[in-house]
């Protein structure tokens, strides 16, 4: 029972990731692409959690936390590039 639900959820998330990939490649503007990349990161976290349920192991739970942190840092860097044009500035007060 739970296995069927998990398989259906994995298929739904895979379809969502494919359509998000279309948005990343095709997206007319840069903010579209950034939002789509962030959503792909969230989908990967969900996919790892579902895989962990399917394989009945808790070894992948650290991967979830790791990927959450990396996706967060990536989104912050892209957003800062969008806002300012520079990612790391030398001196903020000058």
């Amino acid at each position: 029972m739970i296995q069927t639900v998990v398989y259906i959820a994995i298929i739904c998330i895979a379809v969502a990731m494919i359509t998000l990939l279309y948005r990343v490649i095709k997206g007319p503007t840069l903010p579209d692409r950034i939002v789509a990349l962030d959503a792909i990161g969230v989908n990967i976290v969900a996919m790892v959690a579902l895989m962990s349920i399917t394989l009945k192991t808790s070894a992948f739970l650290e991967v979830i936390l790791l990927f959450g942190i990396l996706a967060f840092i990536g989104t912050v860097a892209f957003s800062k590039y969008l806002e300012k044009g520079v990612i790391i500035d030398d001196d903020r007060n000058s």
């Binding site: 790791l66 942190i69 990396l70 840092i73 912050v76 860097a77 790391i88 500035d89 030398d90 001196d91």
Partner: peptide, 22 residues
Amino acid sequence: FVGGLLTSGAILLLLLAFDLKM
């Protein structure tokens, strides 16, 4: 390896929020 990458990710977050000099 992964621990080092995460630590440099933390320092990178500090660099993004503040500046290089600080």
